[in-house]
């Protein structure tokens, strides 16, 4: 298996590059979350820009209904720049427990995470709760100007969220995820294997 190990800065730079280039990343970091939401420890991540990405995630990864939007993760410090948070909204967003309007000026550039009614189920990421995920969001922000990523749970329809690395790898092989990151290890699918019909459409 072409598995590479990277030092932290290079790993984050590589993942941010791949995300900016429109690739889908399976992200496993430390212990798993409790409850129905993936909060940056067992997540599937992608670029937030266009609705085509949402449709691709729905069709080729999650195999679920098209009307379902994806939740955006954003560093807690930057959240109110992109979302219209009520007082206490940052705190509520730490567990994706609130739905807030996406700021009008950002809706076009956050199309993959903006629901049809202009809202999003925001995750506000605190550095202390998920330090690597927080660093990745900042790294993405330095590249694209928007430190926001659609964050959906790392599982296929009908399956529980992955726990062990072996389950993550199995899910990676059976879906349209391009890149798998488990701690310091990184596995990429060969480009040739990616050129499926949905890529031709996108």
């Amino acid at each position: 298996m072409p598995c590479a190990r990277h030092a932290e800065p290079e790993l984050l730079a590589r993942v941010a590059d791949e995300l900016s280039a429109g690739r889908i990343v399976g992200w496993v970091d430390g212990a798993c979350e409790l409850g129905p939401r993936a909060l940056g420890h067992r997540s599937i991540l992608a670029a937030p820009r266009d609705a085509a990405m949402r449709d691709k995630l729905n069709r080729s990864i999650k195999f679920r209904e098209e009307f379902r939007p994806f939740a955006p993760a954003v560093p807690i410090e930057a959240a109110s720049s992109y979302f219209d948070l009520p007082p206490g909204g940052e705190r509520l967003g730490r567990f994706m427990s609130g739905v807030f309007p996406v700021r009008r000026e950002w809706r076009d550039r956050l199309a993959a995470v903006t629901h049809v009614d202009g809202t999003a189920r925001v995750q506000t990421v605190e550095r202390a709760m998920a330090p690597r995920f927080h660093a990745l969001l900042e790294e993405v922000g330095r590249r694209t100007g928007i430190p926001v990523l659609p964050n959906t749970s790392f599982n296929l329809a009908g399956e529980p969220i992955v726990n062990h690395v072996a389950e993550a790898y199995s899910t990676f092989r059976r879906s349209g995820i391009d890149l798998l990151v488990c701690g310091p290890a990184l596995v990429a699918k060969k480009r040739a294997a990616q050129k499926g019909p949905e890529e031709a459409v996108a």
Binding site: G35, P86, P87, G88, R91, F95, S97, G98
Partner: peptide, 12 residues
């Protein structure tokens, strides 16, 4: 919130 703030429970 006109009278107070809304607090969150965890989803678990």
């Amino acid at each position: 919130r006109s009278g107070g703030r809304k607090r969150n429970p965890p989803s678990s």
